[in-house]
Amino acid sequence: MAGEPTAESIALLDKLVAALKRRGVMTEEDIQARVASADRASPETGARMVARAWTDPAYRELLLRDGSAAAEAMGVRMAGNPPLGVLEDKPDLHHLVVCTLCSCYPRAVLGYPPHWYKSVAYRARAVREPRAVLAEFGTALPAGVKIRVVDSTADYRWMVLPLRPAGTEGWAEDRLAALVTRDHLVGVSLPALQGATQAA
């Protein structure tokens, strides 16, 4: 999509940054802190939140009630970020997140979005034929599970809390977190034990 920035766009950015500094809107330190926090954000944060929710009922309740507070509780600085909402999968309900208007994504807890999330194809198809999209990700939902597509159109950012896979009883949080990937937090696939086949 992007390619290399042109000399013209770099010059324009330099002028904008200089103007913002001159007017006292931001300092070099602000910019560096923001870059560092954006680079630090990764799906591992969301995965740790999910693993903790699987093992700690009080944290689960907080996560579902106030995702931003739950992220803060894991050491994520949410100031300046849109509020985070968390969508709880149930045995008969699966959530799939898309932003049909642009590419809103819970960057504070998932990092940069993958390219496919921003593609016109995903944005158009996820909301219209979610089951076909899931199939292309290799995801087969158990029979009877309904899909709820969450179109992220405004001021919230959404993350899925998937079901804890069977067979993980007694696992420690770290081990559970290692099962959870970015795709599970968007809802295009489901966490499972390695080697285990998903129920058809």
């Binding site: 089951r131 309904k146 899909i147 709820r148 597509v149 179109d151 992220s152 159109t153 001021d155």
Partner: peptide
């Protein structure tokens, strides 16, 4: 701002009964 739930099938005239879409609407 509200989170509003819609049935999927009537919107597209295709899809599976019971599937839904949830959207933020002002």
């Amino acid at each position: 701002l509200y989170h509003v739930l819609f049935e999927h099938k009537p919107i597209w005239n295709e899809g599976q009964e019971g599937d839904t879409v949830m959207v933020e609407i002002f």
